[in-house]
Simulated scan of single mutants.
Amino acid sequence: MSAAQSSRARAPRLDIDTLLADRGTRIIVCCGAGGVGKTTTAAALGLRAAEQGRHVVVLTIDPARRLAQSLGLSELDNTPRPVDGIDLSTGGSLDAMMLDMKRTFDDVVLSHSTPEKAEQILANPFYQAVSSSFAGTQEYMAMEKLGQLRAEADNDGTWDLIVVDTPPSRSALDFLDAPKRLGSFLDGRFIRLLLAPAKVGGRAYLKVFNAGVHLVSSTLSKVLGGDMLRDVQTFVGALDTMFGGFRERADLTYALLKQDSTAFVVVAAPERDALREASFFVDRLEQDGMPLSGLVINRVQQVSAPGLSASRARAAAEQRAEEGDDLTAGLLQLHATVTETADRQHHLAGRFTAGHASTPVIEVPALAQDVHDVEGLREVGAALAGR
């Protein structure tokens, strides 16, 4: 056994079924780099928990809409929808929804401002752009929606478990950093200068504003046009009364993530970059005192004949080819390639566990086909539970 495999063998095992059965766990956050299977993992966890008797809502922030396909739904939107075709004999239930970033932002505006102010904000062209595509808005609105779902669950008991599929960001840390980045944006010098009309007024305002942002505004006017700059100023002025609310709710949701009722499940593929990202995230969770349950390594290559090494398989393939048995030679070559891939993945996984010896790990084998229905999610759920 290699050193990497030995380190991996010593890693504690992530017990998914115990996690799902713990009624004290109210939120599970699936996080990791993009393209590692967070959406499928979140859906599979939600399905398995529901079929074990939990009342679950799965929130996805994946624009590819793969969760809807996997759950057999024609569409997902900002409203939780029941999932059909699951085993309800244990008394559980499963709802699913996909974050509508703009609608969530609209709801925040409508809930935390007067009707007149809300109408002014919603009609502002700059707001319409910000609410749909501003960097970090998706992650922040995921936080907003999570807070709303938890409040709803606490009020009427609709769900006892919320499973969150975090945004497919370039960096897994974006989800945790979104509230801080939003606060920095709202407290930034340029924003404060744009707020000067409301805070200073008259000639004093003109003096402050012209001295402070003349260069910036003239540059933006050339690039964006004067109308856009005025839209920005109008938007910021209208939103001023809500800035404190944004920060307060972000802080509350961030505190919610640190409670014992929350469990983070980091998801990675058995590739160098994905595991490096997972390592950063695990370190960050530990640094911030957040509850980490463990690591899921997705799509791990399995070897059907582990006793036959890649080198021996290639040697045998060459011999078979010389004898004219091309079919057997091809199969042996395929086995050698698969074995080399599995060895490389095991080595990378071993490097992670060597650096995070106390982090529980579960490996999910690579499936022969994509998951596109409830039955496929059951298979993934069983693999997550080590069945």
Rank of each mutant, 00 (worst) to 15 (best):
D174G: 11
A135Y: 07
A118E: 08
V108E: 05
S131I: 01
R181W: 11
V130C: 12
D87I: 11
H112I: 08
E75F: 00
L76D: 02
V109T: 01
D77W: 00
D87C: 15
S89A: 14
E75P: 01
P167Q: 01
L88G: 15
Q138H: 14
D100H: 07
V130I: 02
A178N: 08
F105N: 03
G85C: 09
R150P: 07
A142I: 10
L110W: 07
G147R: 01
E119G: 13
M143Y: 13
T137R: 07
L149N: 03
E75M: 00
Q128V: 09
L149C: 04
D100L: 02
V130T: 13
L67Y: 01
R65A: 10
S93F: 03
R103F: 14
N155G: 05
Y140A: 08
F105M: 15
P168F: 04
F175T: 02
L146Q: 02
L122D: 00
V164F: 03
Q69L: 14
Y127H: 05
W159H: 15
A123F: 08
F134I: 12
Y127G: 05
S93L: 12
D95Y: 04
G92F: 06
P179Q: 07
Q148F: 10
L176N: 09
A135V: 13
M141C: 15
L176G: 14
G72V: 02
L76A: 00
E139A: 11
V108Y: 15
R103A: 15
R65M: 10
A129Y: 08
E119Y: 03
E116A: 15
R65S: 03
A153W: 05
K145C: 11
Q138A: 13
P179H: 08
A153T: 09
D87L: 11
L76Y: 01
R181Y: 09
D84C: 11
W159A: 07
D156R: 14
D154M: 09
D84M: 11
Y140Q: 05
V164H: 03
I162D: 06
D106P: 12
F134E: 14
R181T: 08
V164I: 13
P63H: 12
P80W: 03
V108S: 01
R103C: 08
T114K: 07
Y140E: 08
T104I: 00
P167T: 07
A123I: 05
R103N: 06
G91L: 10
L67W: 05
M143C: 13
E152D: 14
S169Y: 01
L71V: 01
L161Y: 03
D160Q: 09
D100V: 03
E144Y: 11
L161V: 08
P80V: 04
L94N: 12
G147S: 09
H112G: 04
M141I: 11
S171K: 01
L99P: 02
S70F: 00
S169Q: 11
F126I: 05
S89G: 14
P179S: 07
D156T: 13
L173S: 12
G92E: 15
A178D: 10
F126V: 07
